[in-house]
Nucleic acid binder design. Structure first.
Lengths: 159, 159
DNA sequence: TGCAATATATGCCATACTGCAATTATGAAT
DNA sequence: ATTCATAATTGCAGTATGGCATATATTGCA
C-alpha cells in the first residue's frame, strides 16, 4: 500500500493523536502530583465537580459521582475532616445537607488547574507563532469533533 | 487588548489544548470503562508496563511502579489470583521470580488499546482529509514539543 | 394527627492498596 | 564453610473505598 494513500494518512493521524494523548496525560498527571499527598484521586474528582457546578446536596453529589449514597456519606466525612469540603444544612430544608468547597478545597483545585495551564503555556511558548497556530487549529478541530466528554466518563478515571 | 495580538493567540492555543486534553481524557476513560470490572486502575498500569517492557522480576516491576516491594508482592498475589499475570521462577536464578502477562492480561490490555484506537479512528473518520491533516500536523508539533511523558508521571494517575 | 416519602447517616462488612519489620530462601564472597 | 548480601514473602496494621440494610430526622400529604 502506498504511504500517501488516504487510508495511511488517516491511520497516521490516529497514531499522532494517541501519541499526543499520552503527552497530555503526562501534563495532567504532573499537575496532580503536587496535591496527591493532600487529596486522593476520587477526592480530587469531587473538588472538580463542586468547582464546576457549585454547592450541591449530598444526594446530587453522590449521584454525579456514581457512588452509593451511603458510601458517599462516609467519603464526605473524610473530606470534611481533611478540610476540603464543608457540610451545611440547607437554608430551606432542615433534612438536606449542602456540600461546598472550603478555601483549602478551592485552593487545591486551583493549583492543579493552574499548573496544567502553566505547563501547556510554557510548552506552547517554545513554538514559533506558525507552529502554535497549527497546534491551535488541530486541537480546535479535534475538540469540536470529539465534544466535551460526559462527566460520568471522566469519573471512571477519577479526574 | 486586541484579540489578534500574539499574546492572545498564545493563550487561545492554551485554551484549545486544555479543551482537547479533556476530550482525549474522555476517550481514555471510555476505553478503560469496559475492563474496570475485571481490573483496577493500578492493576491495569501493571499490564501496561509488562506489555511495554516484557516480563520483569518482582523487584524491577515494583520499582517501576514506585511501590514498596512487600506491598507489591501481595498486589501481585491478587493479580495472579485474578489470572492477569503469572509468577515463574527465573531460569538462571532460583531466588528470582519473573512476572509475565497471562493470555487474559494480554487480552485486556489489547482490548483497551484497541478501543482507544478505534474511537479515535472513528472520530477522525468524520473529518475531511484537510481537517484530518490539520489535526495530524497540530498533534505532531505538540507531541514532539512535549515529548513522551516519563513512565513515573503516568503512574501517578494509574494509566 | 398519623402515615408515607425523602434525605442523610450508621452498623456492619468486604476489598484494594500501602508500609514497616521480620523471615525465608538463595546466591556470592572471603 | 561461614558470613554477608540479595530477592521475595509474610506478619501485622492501617487507610480508602465500596455496598447493603437499617436507623434517624424531617417533610409533605391525607
Amino acid at each position: 500500500m502506498n504511504p500517501s494513500t488516504p487510508v495511511t494518512a488517516a491511520s497516521d493521524a490516529v497514531v499522532e493523536t494517541l501519541t499526543a494523548s499520552r503527552a497530555l496525560l503526562g501534563v495532567i498527571a504532573r499537575s496532580l502530583a503536587t496535591v496527591m499527598d493532600t487529596v486522593t484521586l476520587p477526592q480530587f474528582r469531587v473538588l472538580v465537580v463542586l468547582s464546576d457546578l457549585g454547592p450541591l446536596r449530598m444526594g446530587e453529589l453522590s449521584e454525579k459521582l456514581g457512588a452509593n449514597q451511603s458510601s458517599f456519606s462516609r467519603f464526605a466525612d473524610r473530606m470534611v475532616t481533611a478540610g476540603l469540603i464543608a457540610r451545611q444544612p440547607a437554608a430551606t430544608n432542615r433534612r438536606e445537607v449542602i456540600i461546598s468547597l472550603t478555601e483549602l478545597g478551592r485552593k487545591i483545585h486551583h493549583a492543579v488547574t493552574e499548573a496544567r495551564r502553566a505547563e501547556i503555556a510554557a510548552l506552547l511558548g517554545t513554538l514559533s507563532p506558525a507552529e502554535r497556530a497549527a497546534v491551535k487549529a488541530g486541537f480546535e478541530i479535534f475538540a469540536s469533533a470529539a465534544g466535551e466528554p460526559p462527566a460520568a466518563d471522566l469519573m471512571i478515571v477519577g479526574l
